[in-house]
Design a protein around this nucleic acid. Sequence first.
RNA 1: GCGCCUGUAGCUCAGUUGGAUAGAGUACCUGGCUACGAACCAGGCGGUCGGGCGUUCGAAUCGCUCCAGGCGCGCCA
Length: 585
Amino acid sequence: MKDAITTVLQQALARCQENGSLPADLEARIQVDHARDKQHGDFATNLALTLAKAARLKPRELAELIVANLPDSAVIEKVEIAGPGFINFYINSETQASVIGSILNQQEKFGLTEIGAGKKIQIEFVSANPTGPLHVGHGRGAAYGAAVANLLKAIGYEVHCEYYVNDAGRQMNILAASVWLRYLELCGEDFPFPVNGYKGDYVLDIAAALHRENGDKMFHSWAEISCNLPKDEPEGDKERYIDAVIEKMKALLHPDQYSLVFDVGLNYILDDIRDDLEHFGVVYDQWFSERSLTDSGDVTLALERLQKSGHCYEKDGAIWFRSSEFGDEKDRVLVRDNGQSTYFSSDIAYHMNKLERGYDRVIDIWGADHHGYVPRVKAALQALGDDPEKLDVLLVQFAVLYRNGKKIPMSTRSGQFVTLRHLRKEIGSDAARFFYVMRKCEQHMDFDLDLAMSQSNENPMYYIQYAHARVCSVFSQLADKGFEFDQGHGLAHVDLLTETHENDLITRLTRYPEVIGKAGQQYEPHQLVHYLRDLANAFHTYYNAHHFIVDDKKIRDARLCLITAARHVIANGLKLLGVSAPEKM
RNA sequence: GCGCCUGUAGCUCAGUUGGAUAGAGUACCUGGCUACGAACCAGGCGGUCGGGCGUUCGAAUCGCUCCAGGCGCGCCA
């Protein structure tokens, strides 16, 4: 509809230029908005205001000129000039009401568009280290990423969702060591657990599984392990201590045994994460292993390309990438003096790999604490000769949990956190998914557990779901009262829907495809949340103002068509957010 | 110290890329169920848009500056 108005405005300008009333070199960027106020019609344009200076006319005079040259249109009821020079358009009611037929025909397909047709997007989100279960902070990234992916699919993009598995590196070694030490405890050893080890209960579970399968085969006495170890905190350095424990573990265990412990831990946690996300309604097309980048040679290849193009140098025994040449604060290490490549190297290889797979756009969703990382990744892409503009990094601020009005401290390492699984079980997947995407991603979020767990109607999700359930309820009442719904008959009489509340609801419905388009292109699912609330509000208001099951068959069927259309749109929108649309509550 | 994010009603948040009188929810107050679900509806109260200066027909939105809060500044991942 917006496009239709843009088109007639273009035609009007062209006419003015042809007949000489406007300069021929005038260039216009036509902007058509929804009128904020019903008094201002359905759509409005500020064209006359933006163009006044270039046209050397007063805004209102220019507006009159444009309106006088507007071509006839079947959809426009009337046009008005208002305020300082806004042009307001009123759409005729038949055109508006035709959306009901469209919705009833397309049903779950209504709202889908082809904006991104033929384009491929890769989107990576969550990607938490597999060193423990997901916590509520990851939940926000999961809910947000999945909603963005759904929106992008809805507007025609081919979307590929990925979870990057950090299955290499120091953190994983610390996990392996933690598992092994717990295993030794099960073998009967008694010793102080490292300050820097993973202390969560899940580590005990993994160790127990390991012990069940392997008995005491990997046992070594604490006396053997602890000789020549540096001091742990508080007397010593906890980082150096845990590294020494890992080294000792590698020295004492056969390499196969070490990787067994490592893999048991990794797979246990990955299975857990996968299961958790699946119950959260989040599914991936691919779980991309960091180790596979080393195995495939991609890491080496990326390093070579950076070196050959002259963006690297050696200093203090390490290989550095001159990222400061591309806007980063300082240069970064690619290969450490001990010969190990850094996490950054893998990440460069991963992003190179993504772009080489031919995506038009690559989206990363990271926790906001990683924001300092963005410039160096873009720098690397630029140095590799790729287009850094193809990468969008969306930063999700952390959700801070509150209980009894108090902030809950969280740390993965200490094992002190509220897990996503716990949240899901307390308040349900629907409420959690909805709550997470209610706010803009860059907005800090206070997640009040008491409120969320209270299942009160303060959660607007219930308001929206209730609208859906109410429509369903009307139809069960209809049957109880011995009426039948004739959709074709109703559609033939939608011109009878002339009540203000009906027009408001219809207008709201017509905007749905546009909302999806905008929310998708801007990666902002919260726009859909707000739309759905407004839509539900229009429905509830209508519900309270008029009865649907009336004796007049024409009006009854027409109204039933309208509320069915509303039900479809609510269900479609909630589905994109990963929230169910129950028929009863 | 430098960089990024945030600051809008008592509280939680929107604000259509610079437009018309800044909006919702919640809290509080007043009304509405013997016809489709009151998890609802109607009305009221509530604002120096963190402060200041600037850009212009026009600023919550853009620029500069200050204030407050969060996060980040490793040969960790």
